[in-house]
Amino acid sequence: MGKRILLIEDEANILEAIGFLLSREGWEVQGHGKGESALAEIARVSPDIVVLDVMLPGRSGLEILRDLRADPATRDLPVLMLTAKGQAKDREQAMALGANAFLTKPFSNAELVSTLGTLTDAPAAARSGGGA
């Protein structure tokens, strides 16, 4: 049984692409497109890892991340942040808030897969590297 991953991303096409890719890689993939209900979805799905887009309708991914890190239940949940803005300060902000990894769109499929692999293999090291 593969690990469970929750993709929180509002662009349907991106969600479909990543979902297809990760399913083929053996992940159990769940998708969600809205910001305001993302926390509830995480609690419901209880994934092993979360891929979180920054620009979400209703609620920004950064706010969701902060709430995740504030909640003891999800404090150690590995989170990969995605953003299309591509500015350095977005990365810094995400890492400061406790993201485990950060990818700028567009990224290669291999990049995504290997990043996720690192997070699941050595979550503790990645977390300490994130400077939480």
Partner: peptide
């Protein structure tokens, strides 16, 4: 610029991802 970047990168992401899937031998 940040907005344009976002608007350009978002479709690019799908395009890249799907084209890489299509290019794979699987």
């Amino acid at each position: 610029l940040s907005q344009i970047s976002h608007e350009l990168r978002t479709p690019m992401t799908s395009i890249r991802s799907f084209s890489e899937i299509l290019m794979q031998s699987d």
